[in-house]
Write a protein that binds this DNA or RNA. Structure first.
Lengths: 187, 187
DNA sequence: GTAATTATTTATCATAAGATAAATAAACCG
DNA sequence: CGGTTTATTTATCTTATGATAAATAATTAC
């Protein structure tokens, strides 16, 4: 739990009482490499914090597997389109390395907001940050060539190339696996 | 102000005292068609609510004007990458029709969060909603052809085609103006 | 209302990236 | 360890979209 609170403390202070309240609704989870943490079709009712390992969110489009995003140590993983709408998610969370996570019951977590405004504030700031990242990502996709996007990834998230199979990276970059391979060959 | 509070009430209830506090830090603004409401390089310190008219956020990439997003009546306009980081924005807000807005001082607005948790809650939910829309938009860009993206826009936001000049729509869809024109001709 | 500006379309040519298939290379499993 | 599966690369061919230029249409300003 310590990693989680260290992460939270970057957004706003959280008194001990609030920490205890969160600890009471959280569980440690271990998942082996390549297993899905959440399946497509399940409604997102858990806020995950990745302590150790690597994960991705993906979905299927015409039977093709498309990676929406990657998650590394010390990050929150939620399927926002489901968590914030209450609708079943079209997306799955898959772990790409053996992983240790903290699972927080989202209903109970949201219920804490009334008693602990600090928790609501931290969560708000986490979402604000995620929102900004997503906006920036659109910009990165919009008018960059496949090669520029690959180079940008190497620069901004070199871990991705090192730790993630290329087949998952290609769709994340919005290109085919074959195209990514071609780009890599031209370097 | 009434339009703003009606909009807010969709997210969470807001007592009269909170409304008055917001009214006290807000101003009505009128801007003529095609004028910039905020310039590139300014730090975002205002939360706008569009009462009447139409606006867009745009930025320049290699001297090319790229539309990030469009905003219609009854929506909040902020340059999130600046508002949430405190850094100067690389983006401008331009009004595409004569517009009526409510301008809320963001510093003062955020300061209200401590006294009125309801306001923080409303704002959090607004950002959550915007975040989900942005995630969905990435999905729409990622593996759709230019034509599919154009068709999707006609379907999900027909107002855009009716009210916005095509030159602004093209970059929003991630394609050139010429390409958009070609797509329209093939229908 | 006419000229000047700006937006949109059309045409031509070039190219990045998709589709498909096959060859290697790497990872996994009994 | 050897065989099987899975991932990555390479090759060929096709196509959607970009770049550029020019024509037409619409809007704006005097």
């Amino acid at each position: 739990m310590q990693e989680l609170f260290t992460y939270f403390s970057k957004f706003a202070p959280l008194p001990m009482e609030g920490k205890n309240a969160i600890a009471a609704i959280s569980q440690q989870v271990s998942i082996p490499k390549n297993k899905n943490l959440q399946q497509i079709g399940q409604t997102c009712q858990t806020i995950y914090f990745l302590v150790q390992g690597l994960a991705r969110i993906y979905y299927l489009k015409n039977e093709i597997d498309i990676t929406e995003d990657f998650y590394f140590e010390n990050s929150i993983i939620v399927r926002a389109e489901s968590l914030f709408t209450g609708r079943p998610s079209r997306k799955a969370i898959q772990v790409l390395e053996n992983a240790e996570l903290i699972a927080i019951d989202s209903q109970k977590f949201f219920a804490l907001f009334n008693r602990y405004p600090e928790i609501e504030r931290i969560f708000r700031k986490i979402i604000e940050t995620a929102y900004v990242e997503t906006i920036n990502r659109i910009e990165g996709i919009q008018f960059n060539s496949a090669e520029e996007r690959y180079q940008a990834l190497i620069k901004t998230a070199p871990d991705t190339i090192k730790r993630v199979p290329l087949k998952y990276i290609a769709s994340f970059l919005g290109i085919t696996q074959v195209s990514l391979s071609r780009i890599r060959a031209n370097q």
